[in-house]
Nucleic acid binder design. Structure first.
Lengths: 125, 125
DNA sequence: ACTTGACTTGGAGCTTACTGTAGGTATTAT
DNA sequence: ATAATACCTACAGTAAGCTCCAAGTCAAGT
């Protein structure tokens, strides 16, 4: 699969795909003899994982470390476990912040709704 | 309340507090005759709101627009309603992405746990 | 063989959101 | 009055994560 096809399939720009590979956020992609990227199933799985992690806000740095550990073999399994656990904690904290903010937004939105119906805005900020 | 006290109370650097005011993410803060910031209850409420929104990842730009609308009076209530509703949608999407990523992390973490107990790693990425 | 278009690298540039610095002013304690 | 400390503005610098560009290479069609 060419970089163009991967770019379209996952809605990630070609530049970003090359960037991910360059910084080590995904392992080196399979190439043709001419040096052109030819994404295999495994390469695609890494791209998909990277996209998922990034979309949640997980830092590029964490993915780079994870890829590095994975390439170092089984001995790094405890380290990988720890890394993923830490990232999981971080995401859970982030979700809690979003939930708190959503509650506030809902409250404000509700007040604006009432204001638009009745013409009265209570407790403005 | 001085900027130092506000900084400590909300755990936001003084630089950031000044930055928030400068870019209009919070309205202009009350000053002493000497020109020094003296945060009043209302100023603090804005700081707190800004902190909450930013911690959830809501863009600074959105808060700037919201503050601007608020200062333009009641006629902007529908616009404020729309702005907050859009930001709410964005946060809900972000939360969904976090949830999807958390599921994947949990799956991987579970597999690493089993690997550490049994020495066998199934279905590696 | 030649053109066209997609691909390559290396490196510069951009955006967002701060963060730090320099040079000056205000306030507080002695 | 003076020294120490906290504050001020304006502006430059930084970090993360892309994004764009130039100059060149590869591959497919004619």
């Amino acid at each position: 699969m060419t970089i163009k096809e991967v770019s379209e399939k996952y809605d990630i720009s070609q530049d970003t795909l090359r960037y991910y590979e360059r910084v080590g956020m995904i392992p080196l992609v399979t190439r043709t003899t001419g040096g052109i990227r030819d994404y295999q199933k495994e390469d695609l799985a890494w791209v998909e994982l990277a996209k998922c992690m990034r979309s949640a806000g997980l830092p590029v740095e964490a993915m780079i470390e994870y890829v590095k550990l994975t390439q170092e073999g089984y001995s790094t399994i405890p380290a990988r476990f720890q890394l993923l656990t830490e990232q999981k904690e971080a995401l859970m904290k982030q979700r809690a912040k979003i939930d708190a903010t959503l509650e506030r937004l809902n409250y404000k939105i509700g007040r604006y709704e009432i204001a638009m119906e009745t013409g009265v805005l209570t407790w403005d900020e």
